[in-house]
Computed example of a mutant assay.
Amino acid sequence: MEHWEIILFFLIIAFIYSSVGFGGGSSYLAVLAMYSFPYQEIRLTALICNVIVVVGGVYIYVKNKQTDWSKILPITLVSVPMAYLGAVLKISQETFFLILGITLIIASLLLWIKTDAKNNEETSVYNEGSLIKNGFLGGGIGFLSGLVGIGGGIFLSPLLNLMKWSTPRKIAATSSVFILVNSISGIFGQVSKLSADMDYVRIGSLCFAVFIGGQIGSRMSLNWNPLVIKRVTAILVLIAGINVLIKYW
């Protein structure tokens, strides 16, 4: 496989992110955007890798009963069809990279924002929002997720924290479910119009790399500061976003 170093990058990203409960979709896109791969392959690869890494986290959240389905469903039910629509929408490669560059820059800003990590469920007051508001939020992020090739958690989680939507733990659980279902929906949209330019050996190799990295990271108790990881990632994602815009503007 050409550019074998990407396998190592993906393994490390999955290892670090899974060890602190993240998915890593934006970082996969940021790495892939630095190479001249077909844009449809970039989207499909990032979505599949997202599913592989985040499915374990969703299982743990469900097992520990941290998923509040009455709050998750209004957001995800609208986001799933919108993610599919975003994935099947026909756009040019130049348009894709333009949207991707802008998306990465916005994502880097959201990653940089420090939200309150305290989890005092008894004294805090949360604003759950209306069904319509949650539906619009989920639908909008879902559409962008399918269009670009991310799970959407990088946008949903910071916004829900800023809105004081629920406890940090329940927001993390909601984001994990959101990433999983939207990534799956986006994959279905992508496979409906696969390009002949795709390198399936490369896609399979990267998926295997994130599986290994994700499994190791999720099973290791690492005392890493999630905020530090988020902000280092924010800088890298920002650089990748600016580079994409300069290259394809």
Rank of each mutant, 00 (worst) to 15 (best):
N127L: 13
M1C: 08
F143Y: 15
W249S: 14
F9S: 12
E121M: 11
S176I: 06
G213R: 05
F15S: 10
G57C: 02
N64K: 14
I13F: 01
I187C: 07
W4I: 15
F143S: 06
P81D: 02
A209L: 12
N64D: 13
F136A: 10
L162S: 06
E41Y: 06
P168Y: 14
M163D: 08
I102Y: 00
L147Y: 03
Y61L: 04
I203L: 15
T123W: 09
F22D: 00
T45H: 01
I7K: 03
N225D: 14
A172D: 00
I212W: 03
V62D: 03
G241S: 03
V177A: 13
R231H: 07
L89W: 00
N127Q: 04
T103D: 03
L11F: 13
G129E: 05
I102W: 03
A172T: 09
L131F: 15
F22R: 09
L100Q: 06
V125D: 05
G217Q: 10
I106T: 08
L137I: 14
R43I: 03
V237D: 09
S192K: 09
I72C: 07
M34N: 13
V51C: 08
N119L: 09
I99R: 01
I212K: 04
S221L: 12
A173H: 13
K71Q: 07
W69H: 02
D116S: 10
E94K: 11
Y126W: 08
L110D: 07
N223H: 13
I150W: 11
P81K: 12
I187H: 01
V62M: 12
G213I: 10
S27I: 15
V55C: 14
S36L: 10
L238A: 15
S205W: 14
E128C: 07
Y35I: 07
V58C: 15
V88G: 04
Y84P: 06
G129W: 00
F9C: 13
L180H: 11
S221Q: 14
W224K: 04
F96R: 02
L144Y: 14
S92G: 01
I106A: 13
V88A: 05
L44P: 12
S130W: 06
F188H: 02
G241F: 06
L245K: 09
P74Y: 01
Y39L: 00
A46C: 03
S145M: 05
V51F: 03
I242S: 02
I75A: 11
L160R: 05
I99M: 09
V210D: 01
K133L: 06
L85G: 08
Q190P: 05
G101M: 04
R219S: 11
W4N: 02
Y84N: 07
L89V: 07
V88F: 00
Q93C: 04
K63I: 02
I141K: 02
L77S: 13
Y59F: 13
T115Q: 13
I113A: 04
S192Y: 07
I52C: 08
I6W: 00
N223E: 08
I52Y: 04
Y28E: 11
L206A: 00
F10N: 10
T76I: 15
T123H: 11
E2M: 02
A172Y: 00
E122N: 04
P168R: 06
G241T: 09
L109E: 03
V62C: 04
L85N: 00
V148P: 11
G140M: 06
G135V: 06
Y35G: 05
H3Y: 15
L156W: 10
